[in-house]
Amino acid sequence: MNGGQDMGGTHGFGPVVVEKDEAVFQADWERRIFGTQICTRLRGIDTLDEVREGLESMSPAQYLSASYYEKWILALERLLVEKQVLTEDELLARYSEFAANPSADLPSHPEPSFVEFADRVVRTGGSASREVVKPPSFRAGDIVITRNVHPCRHTRMPRYVRGRRGVIERVYDAFLLPDLNVTGVEQPEYVYAVALEGRELWGESAEARSRVYIDLWESYLLPGEEAA
């Protein structure tokens, strides 16, 4: 989706400011929305691709105006309503109750086994790669052309790398194609780190001796010679 999130190469955002000793979370609600979102994913309610599509579906104006964790609130509310885990009316009603009485207690749902599960999964992780029977279509050193496509839903190929000539740098395992995963279809494909010369991306504006390496799924790529 050519949305607000796709900002590689955009001008006008000012200097990068590195803060000293910043806190992990800037407010209690940030840590709570972070933990809540991780838990809904661990329950299997949503996938990371769906959460990302939720962020990308915001209008660019809203995307750019919202802080990082504000976007998480907005995207999670929308996703949970879409998935019929809760309704908009329930959210509004609960919001009003807490607005009237901010110190009201949260309901209790004791389930220590889930807390242990969440703690264990976050600490131990787990591979997301999938088995694919056929061998990769490209090898390191192959010239490829990135497809010039503009999908209106979730994709992980940003605009600034589309329709460019590059070289396969590394061949990784296969992972679910994000574009189909958000539609509920699990299609594993090999992922490649593709090297793109600065000049190929930015023309005369490119800085000297700079390259971008980006990870692209197999169906984002065409063989170089065919498209030449």
């Binding site: 407010a27 949970l80 959210l91 109750e97 901010p102 309901p107």
Partner: peptide
């Protein structure tokens, strides 16, 4: 932000 997060958390605990 605080109230919306709390509303979400509250409903998700209830469910």
């Amino acid at each position: 932000a605080t109230l919306r997060t709390r509303a979400l958390e509250s409903l998700l605990l209830e469910k």
